[in-house]
Each structure stands twice: as structure tokens, then as C-alpha cells.
């Protein structure tokens, strides 16, 4: 199903403008992630799409050729996975998954077959007769997903489906979820504040900030060509190089850098993995912090920018704290963004 939303905004009764006029299109079978910091309006947007929240006047939501803006939630045929899963404690796993099918008035045997099918896809056969309270967090997450997809919704919505799990489980379920969603071949919108999660699962990521979508694109596009300082910082943690641009040279506290183009009027950003400790580097700084992360070190260097400049160091022997180091950054690794906008 193609999903389209135009001019959609939400002002809560207390005056909070949680969502400013927003446009979003999701192609058939596409998995889109809404990524943004806490409080930026992701859940609000998702709930408007589901029909759980009424958008401001003038908003328009289309499922294919149907305008569903004023359709109540129970008639929109969307599947939703809630952050807290919202499994029905008065029903078994099987009954939870079958509930949506029962609401569609399918026959008993038909419901049985469909539920069994979904149970198998989500590897939940063993737990089908259990009470939902007797499941682990990961199993509950899968039941919530199974319940949402069993009625074959036109659109699947997921609100931070992994955030209630602990870190190690989250990582393994993240990849599992990415595979499952593609297996279902379903159009899905998926909310998260974790960029790794968004990149691992989504075909396209829409970055949100302060109630609006600031940029949307494939994970690579966002990473390589952010259109604002916010996106550069939020996706891949780009650091700003605070200095003075003259022509195509940037002068920092710790030395000069060649820019890929005309620098004046631009802010310059770089990512930690592009900051290399190199004896032939043009920048000079002093090691302030070292963090060992197994496969690499993260090194904080002072004296180059007003804040610490972080470098990813993959070599065997890291420099010591206090040691002076030379730093090189390739011009093509620098991201230039027009100054003025935040």
C-alpha cells in the first residue's frame, strides 16, 4: 500500500505543538523509520497515522486512494506494535494473535490456520498456549508483532518496538525484526531514537526534530549528505570544526585544513572515523582521553577545536594520555553545511 500524508500537524489541547505541518510518503512495501531525539513528535506522528490521535484541521492522510483522515482507528486496518506491547493479559498467546482475525469475522478454522502460520513465522509455536504474563521480554515482543501482522494490515506501525529490551537482546532482535519485516513484505513505519536501529531496519529514514521531518533518505544518503547540522550530528555523530574559513582553507586552533570547496559562509563537520592520527597531519593536538572499545580506541584530542575532537584509532598501540599527536583529515571527508541554520 502506498501511504501519503500531507499538511499534517498536531496541537495538543494544552497548546503543545507536537507536530508541525508535515509531509510524508511511504511507497508500497517500503520500511520507513522515524528517527529523532526524545520529545520530537515521533509517537505523535505515528499515533496520527494509526488514528489514535486526531490531527489538526487541514491535515490529510491517504492509504492508496482512500482518504482515511476521519476514519476511526478500528476501521483503518493498521497493525500496531506498542512500546509496552499492550498484550491482553486476559488471553493466551494464541488468543492474542487471533483477536484481530476474530474482529474480521473470519471462521474458526480459518483463524486457527492463520494463527498457526504466524506463530510459526515468529517461532512462537512452543508458547501458543501460554499466558502472556509467562513470557520473556523478547517473546512478548514477538507476540506483539505476530498479533499486529496476523490480520494482514495495510500498514504496520511500530513504536520503539525494541526499547523495552536490554541492550544485548535488542541487538539480536533488531536483525531478526529486519528479516521478519521483509519476509512479511509489508509497508511499515517504525519509530526509534536509536540511529543504529533505524539504519539496520529501514529502507529509508526520516529524521525528525522539534515536530518536523528535517530530512528523509536512505541511511547512506543521510550519513554522507546530511542537509543540516542537526542531521549531521544526530546521524553518525558528526563534530563541528569551529574555525575561520578563508577561501578553501579552514584555520583551527591546532592548524590549517584544506577544504573540498569554498568555505566561507559554511560550517564544517567531520566524523570521528575520518579523524586520523597521522605523523604527516597538518593539525596538532594533545591526547586527553582514551577509551578502549575492543575493536578500536576512541581518543579525545584537545587543542584543535574548542571542544574535544574525537578520533577512532584502529591501530594496536594507542598513544598515551598527554602525548602530543598530529592529526590528518582528508578534504573529501569534510561536510560543508551552510552556516546560519541550526
Amino acid at each position: 500500500m502506498t501511504f501519503r500524508l500531507t499538511n499534517t500537524a498536531k496541537t495538543y489541547p494544552d497548546g503543545t505543538r507536537a507536530l508541525l505541518s508535515t509531509k510524508l510518503t511511504v511507497k508500497n512495501g517500503e520500511i520507513v523509520s522515524l528517527l529523532g531525539p526524545s520529545g520530537c513528535g515521533k509517537t505523535t506522528l505515528l499515533r496520527i497515522i494509526a488514528g489514535l490521535e486526531t490531527p489538526d484541521l487541514g491535515s490529510d492522510i491517504w492509504f492508496d486512494e482512500d482518504n482515511v483522515t476521519s476514519l476511526p482507528v478500528e476501521r483503518r486496518n493498521v497493525g500496531m506494535v506498542f512500546q509496552s506491547y499492550a498484550l491482553f493479559p486476559n488471553m493466551s498467546v494464541r488468543a492474542n494473535i487471533g483477536y484481530g482475525l476474530k474482529m474480521q469475522k473470519l471462521s474458526k478454522p480459518e483463524i486457527e490456520t492463520r494463527v498457526s502460520e504466524v506463530l510459526e513465522m515468529c517461532q512462537l509455536q512452543k508458547f501458543s498456549a501460554r499466558a502472556v504474563n509467562a513470557l520473556s521480554g523478547g517473546q512478548r515482543q514477538r507476540v506483539a508483532l505476530a498479533r499486529a501482522i496476523a490480520p494482514r494490515p495495510r500498514l504496520l506501525l511500530l513504536d520503539e518496538p525494541l526499547s523495552a529490551l536490554d541492550a544485548s537482546l535488542r541487538e539480536s532482535l533488531r536483525d531478526e525484526l529486519a528479516v521478519l519485516l521483509r519476509e512479511f513484505n509489508i509497508t511499515a513505519i517504525f519509530v526509534t531514537h536509536d540511529q543504529d536501529e533505524a539504519m539496520a531496519i529501514a529502507d529509508r529514514v526520516a529524521v525528525m526534530s522539534n515536530g518536523r521531518i528535517v530530512q528523509s533518505g536512505t541511511p547512506e544518503e543521510l550519513y554522507r549528505h546530511p542537509n543540516s547540522a542537526f542531521v549531521a550530528g544526530f546521524v553518525g555523530n558528526a563534530m563541528r570544526l569551529d574555525g575561520k574559513c578563508t577561501g578553501s582553507v579552514l584555520t583551527l586552533e591546532g592548524g590549517g585544513l584544506r577544504l573540498p570547496g569554498e568555505g566561507s559562509g559554511n560550517n564544517v563537520f567531520v566524523r570521528a572515523e575520518d579523524v586520523r592520527i597521522d605523523d604527516n597531519g597538518s593539525l596538532c593536538g594533545q591526547v586527553e582521553t582514551i577509551t578502549f572499545l575492543g575493536t578500536h580506541y576512541r581518543i579525545g584530542i584537545k587543542g584543535i577545536t574548542p571542544n574535544l575532537l574525537t578520533s577512532i584509532f584502529a591501530g594496536q598501540s594507542a598513544p598515551k594520555v598527554g602525548q602530543s599527536v598530529k592529526v590528518a583529515i582528508k578534504p573529501e571527508a569534510l561536510i560543508l553545511l551552510p552556516a546560519g541554520e541550526i
Partner: peptide
């Protein structure tokens, strides 16, 4: 939330 869950599954 439980009711919202049921509503998304088509319950009036």
C-alpha cells in the same frame, strides 16, 4: 493502551 491495542486490531 490495551484498548488502543484492541482498536488497532479492529475492535469497536
Amino acid at each position: 493502551t490495551l484498548e488502543e491495542g484492541a482498536a488497532t486490531l479492529g475492535a469497536s
